[in-house]
Structures are given as structure tokens and as C-alpha cells.
Amino acid sequence: MDQKHVHPLLVKYARIGAYKQPHCPGCGNGIVAQCMLRAIDELKLDMDKIVFASGIGCSSWIPSPLFNADVLHTTHGRSLAFATGVKLSNPELRVVVFTGDGDSAAIGGNHLIQAARKNIEILTVLVNNRIYGMTGGQVAPTTPHGVKTKTTPYGNLEYPFDLCKLVEAAGASYVARWTTFHTRQLVSSMKKGLLKKGFSFIEVISQCPVQYGTFVGIRDPAEMLHIFRKISVPFEKAKNMSREELEGKIVIGEFVDIERTGLAEAYQRLLEMMNL
């Protein structure tokens, strides 16, 4: 492809021959990918010292094969466990996991809370499109109550996870939630997460106009972004709102930002002590 028609961040950071993307038109994954590359660019990080890991599902194709770095595209739900092995083995590498709500709230849920508990120095970006997109629109553990999907034709009887609360309770050092509308805040959070010396978790509520949009009757991605803007409530404001008032809202912001020694660093200290 002629490089002058390609976004400058892609010219700089995309794997050659990987411009062609598998995502559906209007998908939020492109926004998330651009935010990550922008964060890396603004921090002037060396891509050769970052390992991107991902699992299975739409969001797992954000770094694989697009990002021109070491990429480990793994099995469904397990990317955090693979990434734990990478980080512990070479603590000098920055490790970033791209995952989705099916990947890390359902099949890999335990790995998510355990990685947070271990406080392993990994930045996890969980793109939450509230549905199983790649497999054709089945209900997810993040699908709102009552929403009809391919496998909840009479409406979802269950309630969705609050993933940020879950990861905060598990012990993460940094927890934030934004939507694909809040790109500036997302870039700023990603920069923090990339530099954090502990487990960082960013949930990005993302539009899926093709699957989720079909079921809720909104096929226009721009309209979905406007809705995100309208229903988002900053964390500080949400503190003073009742449960009823928060119904149908997305609470955004930074929930946790603390300093606590990460597992890889703790292990390095042990090794230094043992091998004086």
C-alpha cells in the first residue's frame, strides 16, 4: 500500500504487510489500537522492548499481526497467564495484554483476578463490546440485563460484571475505565499503565455496530459513540449518585492508582539476595 495514504502512526509502528485489518466496519478496535500506538509514541518507547500478548476474540487481533513488535497471540482466555511467563522471565520487557470481555471476564476470568492479585507488571487493555462479536453475537458476561442476543432471544436474564470493581478488589495497582469516545483520557491512562510498576487494568467500553448494534437497533458507530458520551458519568460524580440513578450509565475515570511492588520486581530482589 502507498504509505502516503496510511496513518503516520501505522507507518511508524505497523508490521509490514499487516495493514489489512480483520475488524468489521465501524469497530472500536481501530480507535483502541491508535490510542495505544499514540501512547507509545508520546512516551518514545522502544517497540523492541515491548511484548504484546492477546487471546481469542475481536480485540485480540488489535496487536496481532498489526503491531511491529514481538507478539504472542495465544489461546482463548489465557493471554495473561502466557504474559506472566514472559514478564517474570525478562522483567526488562514491558508486557501489554489486549483482551476482551469474553476472553477475560468469562473463560479467562480467573487469570484476570489472579494476575491482579499477584500484581504482576502487565498492562491489560480489556476491550468490552458487551457481546461475543467474532462468533456471531452470543450473550457475554458483560451484556446488559434484558438485551436480546443470538443466544438470549427472549432477553438476557443475567446481570453484567463490573470488571473494574472486580479487578480493584483483586489488588491491581492501576484501574481505569473509558469508552472509545474518550480517546484523550484513554491515551493518558495507557501512558500511566505503560509506566506503572504493578498490574494495570484499563477497560474500554467499545462499540460493536455489526453484532451488538444489530440487537439494540443502533447500526451507526458514530451514534454509538455519541451515546457513550451521553451516558458516561465521571467517577467523582458517580460517588454521590444512587444505584437507580446509575442504571444504564457508564462510570468512567481512574478508580485505582497506587504504588505497590510488582511480582517481577519482588522476584528479582529475591534472586539478587540469593545470588550475592
Binding site: F82, V86, S89, Q114
Partner: peptide, 25 residues
């Protein structure tokens, strides 16, 4: 100077082993 880690299950044990192998161990 080796790493020992107890993981949350056998799935993550083999997963972290594969990650470690790609990191050169």
C-alpha cells in the same frame, strides 16, 4: 537465578511456561 511460580491452575501453568520459553528460558 531461575523462576518458580505457582499458578492458579494447570492451564495457566503450561501457558506461563510457553511464555517463558519465548522469553528465552
Amino acid at each position: 537465578k531461575g523462576i518458580y511460580i505457582q499458578m492458579e491452575d494447570e492451564i495457566s501453568s503450561i501457558a506461563s511456561v510457553i511464555g517463558a520459553s519465548w522469553a528465552g528460558r
